[in-house]
């Protein structure tokens, strides 16, 4: 199987497979992104052709300025809102889910079975939309950022707990006992001893949940309609009707909101892949 033992014919075959795979991958997975970038940097007139032609002029900064200026700087507000929702929701998720996973893994029994069943339901059952709006309205959280945050937390909880539970299983119980003998117990044990040990899985869960929540469109659409508390995905969707003739601005908007996940991807590719697979496989 290794390259040392390949015959010349085998090596030629491998080269062929490599070449074909690379070409197919470039065509299928790269061309759409090339189109986004090309259209985003063109002027309005040329971008309306929707072709792959090389830009005749490069009004890059101008396009960026115009996208941010549109509708009284809505995109900037949206970036602020999305950042707040993502950061706060992910922080709450990490603390709450790690706590649940810790006790869930350490204390099996009837209660744990019930909790496990609830977690599984959360992965499978589609959220009931209008009743959630009704609940949010009763609590005066409908159309507010805190309302969106709690909903994102509730909907991402199952996945995050599973991620933590799998990791906590690899931490020896003796460690808890040693800490208990040293006089650490309950919350102190958890926050001083356990939570710091969970750093690797915390990084994974922060990255994965950040991408999910930042990219989420459905929940902002339902729970924070209107301009005031719009998130970046909602803004993009609203721009769709407004920029229907200004494709350069529409695609500049797409390009701008793709940059944060792209950065996460470039910096932490391995982490995020392992997070998604382990969460998925354990689920």
């Amino acid at each position: 199987m290794s390259s040392r033992t390949l015959s010349p014919a085998g090596r030629a075959r491998r080269l062929g497979v490599e070449a074909i795979s690379l070409v197919v991958a470039l065509v299928v997975f790269v061309i759409p992104f090339v189109f986004i970038v090309l259209t985003a940097v063109k002027d309005e007139f040329q971008s309306s052709d929707l072709t792959f032609a090389w830009p005749t002029s490069w009004p890059v900064m101008d396009n960026i300025k115009q996208v941010f200026a549109a509708r009284d700087g809505m995109l900037l507000v949206a970036f602020k809102n999305s950042t707040i929702v993502t950061v706060v929701a992910v922080t709450i998720l990490v603390v709450l889910c790690a706590m649940v996973a810790f006790v869930l893994q350490r204390r099996p029994g009837k209660v744990a079975n019930v909790v496990n069943a609830l977690i599984l339901s959360g992965l499978i059952i589609p959220p009931a939309i209008v009743p959630t709006i009704w609940v949010l309205q009763k609590l005066h959280l409908f159309k507010t950022i805190p309302g969106l945050i709690v909903v994102e937390v509730a909907f991402s909880m199952s996945f995050t707990i599973l991620l933590y539970r799998a990791f906590i299983a690899s931490i020896p119980r003796e460690l808890d006992e040693a800490a208990t003998i040293d006089g650490c117990s309950g919350l102190a044990l958890f926050f001083r001893v356990i939570l710091p040990l969970l750093r690797p899985v915390t990084i994974t869960s922060v990255l994965t949940n950040s991408v999910f929540i930042f990219n989420d469109f459905v929940n902002p659409l339902y729970f924070t309609p209107g301009d005031e508390n719009a998130t970046v995905q909602l803004t993009l969707y609203n721009f769709l009707s407004q920029f229907s003739t200004q494709y350069n601005l529409l695609f500049m908007n797409i390009l701008l909101i793709t940059i944060p996940p792209l950065l996460v991807f470039i910096l932490f590719n391995g982490k995020i892949v392992s997070g998604m697979t382990s969460g998925a496989v354990k689920g």
Binding site: L96, M99, V100, P127, A154, M157
Partner: peptide, 25 residues
């Protein structure tokens, strides 16, 4: 050490914003 109170904060959020809407639907 492994108090069930650890379930409480997550349980409140999950109960109010996921289970309750599902049930009343």
């Amino acid at each position: 050490t492994y108090s069930y109170w650890f379930y409480a904060p997550a349980g409140v959020v999950y109960g109010i914003f996921f289970i309750l809407p599902t049930v009343i639907s």
